[in-house]
Design a protein around this nucleic acid. Structure first.
Length: 115
RNA sequence: AGAGUCAGCGAGGUGGUUGCAGAUUUGUCCUAGAGGCAGAUUUGAGGAAAGUCCGGACUCCCGAAAGACCAGACUUGCUGGGUAAUUCCCAGUGCGAGCGAUCGCGAGGAUAGUGCCACAGAAAAAUACCGCCAAUUUAAAAGGAUGAGGGCGAAAGGAUCAGGUCGGAGGAUAAUUAUUUCCUCAAUCCUUAUCCCUCAUAAUUCAUCCCUUGAUUUGGUAAGGGUGCAAAGGUGCGGUAAGAGCGCACCAGCAGUAUCGAGAGGUACUGGCUCGGUAAACCCCGGUCGGGAGCAAGGUCGGAGGAAUUAUGGUUGGUCUUUUUCCGAUUCCGAUUUAAGGAGAACCGCAAGAGGUGUUUGGCAACAGACAUCCUAGAUAGAUAACUGCCCUCAACUCAAACUUGUUUUGAUGCGAGAACAGAAUCCGGCUUACGUCCUAACUCUCUCU
């Protein structure tokens, strides 16, 4: 299950904003950073949920493995989509230990983090 | 049949559902856009996409006006060919490895010159330390050589071997001595062409032949001397006082001539005999060369800020001159224009190319030409995945059988597995490295049969 482009965090500024102002929550293999934006009720302007995944070369030097972990996390997010607050901007940082994790691990940890 | 060598192809196939990205297209929405939403069709990783080690295309900047010479830089360096180009490829040469198919090689010059060669060794590019030989002087008398026999408590070589205590021999130290402390040596067997068998020893000899031996000085010699990467061609025979390419044969090397070849080189003959290594030391010869940065190149659009204009833009904008108004000046906001350009990684560059496939011509080949045909990823926090039907395969797993009881062979089936290395980032050509398995073609060696 993939994540459409409109729900992806793309720009460098957005990442910086989330890193500087977001709330951090930790699990053994992941770090979740959330930023709730104040949306204007009068204009009825609810921004999209945006999710970004950060995985460094420290996790693995091989691009195949990094891409696979990204896909698994994206899929896990789509499963837990209802738990995310509307308009939130989320960055998920993958820790180096996560190289041994399977899909079920990510699913469980994300469920815990998003509660 | 077995064991190998080498080249090439592929990286399970074909459908379905869901999802992601691109392209085309339809509908719809509005804020009318590089727009959102929904649908349809279609496309979507590799042989190495990797390492970024080379070579180019392409783009911009600097320089120059394209030629010659000098200087400089680089090192691509056996020959010939191929290519856009190369450190690549093909065909050969030489050397090395292999019975062979075949494989490997940074492969110009050390006889252009300069330098360096640690340690060891007598000596590191011509030196005479030892040795050998001749002669001179002097001293000594009985030795030397060969053969037979003997010795293995000495010496050399080899093999094997655990430690402690007492005692022994030699040495050192302190000390008047007694004695103290420390170190070394002595194990067994075998072999010997060396050594030893007159010196009183382990061995307690014999035969034949010769005339010498020590020292000093002078000269000859490059055969021998444990070293070293390397000792001034190698082996053998002759020769000599002793020696020496001094002479001869074969081999290695060098030079010349002839001949074959396009060339690297090959072959034959002749000659004087003959000169280590290092060029990834400087260097010589040959070859190549505008320099630099790299798609985050570069271009387009261009926000903010800047400049200029605005008699009639401002329901009376603010401030100043003026009692107030008008008028004027200045400033702010807005509008218009504009040079430059840095935000926005927006758009282009960016997917038709030194392209692929097939046939054919030339060429041993790399490759080149002609004709036909095909269009085949384009993301940018970066798309390829998940599940599943059928077919195919069976390395591992499971099950069964066989005897040669094994990491064996054969077979079967599947609620099993389909894997290894690994993910495009401007694009090509190479190289290198990683990689489970399968298939095809050619060739070599060994064995068996005809």
């Amino acid at each position: 299950m993939g994540l459409p482009k409109t729900h992806r965090l793309k720009k460098r500024q957005d990442y910086r904003a989330v890193y500087e102002q977001g709330i951090r929550r930790y699990s053994p293999h992941l770090t979740l950073i959330t930023l709730d934006r104040n949306h204007n009720q009068e204009l009825n302007d609810i921004p999209e949920i945006k999710v970004g995944i950060s995985i460094s070369k420290k996790v693995s030097k091989k691009a195949v493995i990094r891409n696979r972990i990204k896909r698994q996390i994206r899929s896990a997010i789509m499963v837990n989509w209802q738990l995310i607050a509307p308009g939130a901007q989320i960055v998920i940082v993958v820790k180096p230990k996560a190289i041994k994790c399977k899909y079920e691990h990510f699913l469980r940890e994300l469920e815990e983090l998003l509660k």
